[in-house]
Simulated assay, not measured.
Amino acid sequence: MDVLSDVLRNVRLTGAVYFDVNAREPWVAETPATSRICAQVMPAFEHAISFHIMLDGICWAQLADESEPPVKLSSGDAVIFIGGEGHFMGSVPGKRAEPNMDLYVRPSDRPLPFLLNGLGGEGKAARFVCGYLGCDARPFNPILEALPRMLRVPANQNEATTALIRMALAENEKPRAGGETILSKLSELMFLQAIRAHIDTLPAESIGWLSGLRDRHVGRALTLMHGRPGQDWTLDALAKEVGLSRSAFAERFTELMGVPPMSYLGNWRLQVAARLLEAPSMSIAQAAAQVGYESEAAFNRAFKKQVGLPPGAWRRSRANGGRLPA
């Protein structure tokens, strides 16, 4: 079981490239927090991650709250805002603008991306694409807390994907069937590559979900939990499988992951069950049993505690538009 792939699949990660922007210095563009526009740009999802990929030229990107210094992006670099925070980009660091809220709508009469020309003045040219990655935040998405708020992806970690995006964008003048889907899948690939590269840069002493993936004992436990979420796992059984004593395993897992092993397993079971419930033929009792609950009532209580509403109401909400109430 590939744990990272399993998580991305179960949280329904789905990409969309929205804007193909041609700008000239001096230019600045500000993007609102995705909490304000998620219902318009990624209507089937509770959360949206923002990303930008520089194709030509340079720019500076910064969080709107200015809590971190700006980062410089050159041709081939990308930047990802995991929490969907508001941010701004421009040819000069620190310059701000008001976001144009009219741009953030998913078109029904034409494919993405929108082509935006004429941003800025008459100086050096820059080109970049902007988009979103929709995903579930509930019941449980460990990726959203595992990555930094603003993640810069250097060009040398993204060369193949950027080249393919350039090729796909070249079809804009003569669009072909499937172009929007190609760009969608390429943005998902870019995100996966960014996570893998980030894992490789983590210090040996780092903690968190991504560090747990690469730890020999914790990573093995995660593989078992994700591979067989419905099994009647106990702390003793997991410790035996990974080759540690009960106490040593519990301590190591909790230290790295921030939660005890059985708490993590419970959270992940709810996420798997949420995906199972998307099938109309799947009853709540069947979903509960498949993820290891002996009682439908116990499953209902755990689901409501984590999500804020019982599984039946969650299913109806998803069927009626996809987004959960806040």
Score class of each variant (00 low, 15 high):
G178C: 11
A78M: 08
Q62A: 02
R323V: 11
E122D: 15
E159R: 11
P229K: 02
L222V: 12
Q271L: 14
T234P: 08
L256Y: 05
S206L: 12
G212Y: 05
F253R: 01
I58P: 06
A170I: 11
P280G: 05
S75F: 12
V291C: 04
P261F: 05
G258V: 08
R323N: 04
R228E: 15
Y264C: 07
S108M: 13
G131Y: 05
I165L: 06
M190V: 09
E122I: 14
L224C: 10
A285H: 04
L144Y: 04
E188Q: 14
L224M: 11
K305Q: 15
H217D: 13
E171D: 15
V259T: 12
F303T: 03
K124E: 13
P99R: 02
P311G: 06
D236N: 13
D200I: 09
G179E: 05
P26V: 03
R96W: 09
T31G: 08
R316V: 13
V17Q: 05
L238H: 01
M225V: 14
Q62I: 11
L151N: 00
P229V: 07
K95S: 08
L186N: 00
P70F: 01
M190L: 15
L119Q: 03
F45W: 11
G219M: 07
L144R: 04
A274K: 04
P111S: 15
V259Q: 07
P203L: 09
S295N: 09
V291Q: 01
L133S: 08
E30L: 07
F114R: 03
A274P: 13
E30F: 08
E251Y: 15
A163H: 11
S5P: 02
G57H: 01
T31R: 09
R9D: 12
T162F: 05
L4K: 02
L133W: 04
A297P: 04
A197V: 07
R252C: 09
P93D: 02
P261Y: 02
H47V: 12
R228P: 09
A250K: 08
K304R: 13
P280A: 02
K72I: 11
A297K: 11
P32I: 01
G90N: 04
A273Y: 07
P142K: 00
K305H: 14
R301S: 14
L324D: 03
M257L: 12
A97T: 09
T162M: 09
P99K: 01
F19D: 01
Q193S: 14
D65T: 12
A274L: 08
D215M: 11
K240G: 10
A221W: 09
P229Q: 00
A23M: 05
G266T: 07
F299K: 05
G230W: 04
M167V: 12
G134K: 01
G179W: 02
K174A: 14
F253H: 04
R36Y: 11
I80E: 00
G123Q: 01
P139Y: 01
P32W: 00
E296D: 08
A273T: 07
P32S: 01
P154V: 03
L238R: 00
R246V: 15
G123F: 06
H198E: 07
M257I: 13
D77V: 08
T223A: 14
I199G: 07
P139E: 03
D102V: 08
V28N: 00
D232A: 15
T34D: 00
P26F: 03
N156Y: 13
A168D: 03
E255Y: 10
K95Y: 08
S74R: 14
H47W: 10
P142Q: 01
A194T: 05
W314R: 00
G118C: 10
K185G: 09
